[in-house]
Structures are given as C-alpha cells and as structure tokens.
C-alpha cells in the first residue's frame, strides 16, 4: 500500500484531531473574546476535516473529501457572516466580550 497512511498511521491523525478538537472546545468554553471563540470554532471544524480526509483515505472513499470541501465552503460563509455581525456588535457595544452580550434572555 503506497498510501500516506503507511508512512503516518491512522492513529496519529486521530490523536491530532482529538487534541485540536479539545483545544477548540476548551477555547469556546473558556475564552471571552468573541474573535477567539470564533477561531476556536474554526479549529474544531478543521479537526473534523482532518479526520474526514484521513478516514476517506483509509477507506478509499471519496465522499469524505467531498464533505471536507463542503465544510470549508460553509465555514467560509459562516466566517463572513459571523465577522460582519461581530463588527456590528463592536460598533454598538464597543466590546467583543461575550459575557457582555447577554441581552437575549428570559
């Protein structure tokens, strides 16, 4: 098998993904700056992307990689919209601290 997987085994990808994903989750949970939260979400998405490509290669199935492109496209769109919202929030509140963004309640 001349796949890249013979060089770097699947477990490594798995481990890396899990670490990246956990960092992402922790970032989302504990950081208060909205931009950093955003970046952490991107990190989680990319962790999943990595896993998808790895398994796609493992199973010789192209569907996984198609999915990755799809996720990247959605992520791009999301970032565009999300950052725009953030800019608006900053313009209004002069902050991007998510603790301050608690007007939507009861």
């Amino acid at each position: 098998m001349n796949s890249i997987l013979s060089v770097v085994p699947i477990e490594y990808y798995l481990g890396l993904s899990v670490i990246l994903f956990t960092i992402g989750v922790m970032g989302v949970l504990f950081r208060r700056n909205a931009i950093i939260v955003f970046m952490c979400i991107e990190l989680m998405l990319n962790a999943v992307n990595l896993l998808l490509t790895a398994f796609s290669t493992l199973h010789g199935e192209a569907g996984g990689q198609v999915m990755v492109f799809f996720i990247m496209a959605v992520a791009a769109a999301e970032v565009a919209v999300g950052l725009a919202i953030l800019v608006m929030i900053y313009n209004n509140l002069r902050t991007v601290d998510i603790k301050e963004m608690n007007k939507l309640k009861w």
Binding site: V25, V28, L29, R32, I98, K99, M101, N102, K103, L104, K105, W106
Partner: peptide
C-alpha cells in the same frame, strides 16, 4: 422554564458540550 434562558453565551455552550 424561561429562566434557563440566561442570555449568557458561555453558559449555552457549556450546557451544549
């Protein structure tokens, strides 16, 4: 039930996780 709706994004994310 509406008091669960705190408006705190961190809280939402935490409960989601």
């Amino acid at each position: 039930l509406r008091f669960a709706q705190t408006g705190n994004i961190g809280g939402y994310v935490f409960s989601m996780v």
